[in-house]
Amino acid sequence: MIVDARGDRCPMPIIRLARAAAGANPGTAVTVLWTDAAARHDIAAWARMRGHRVVGEEVAEPADGHQAWATTVLLGGAGTTTAATLR
């Protein structure tokens, strides 16, 4: 699954990524394309907060002359990071 958030400013790349993740099954890989510099850090923070995992980042096709990247997140299952499973 691919979310093209190139040209979007923060926090829109994260919101669009979250919308895509909301309808997807655990184990799905979602790749988000972005140009906003905050996205790299906020995708990682979002994944940590939601129990997903960032599995890769690559350079992507530039958009409107702006350097772009593609970050892939592997969606965790419901409850995979709850306190119960950590214990």
């Binding site: 923060c10 926090p11 994260i14 905050a38 850090h41 906020d42 990682a44 923070a45």
Partner: peptide, 10 residues
């Protein structure tokens, strides 16, 4: 915030 690895937006 980047150096601390926390959410940077909002």
């Amino acid at each position: 915030l980047v150096a601390m690895g926390v959410l940077t937006h909002g």
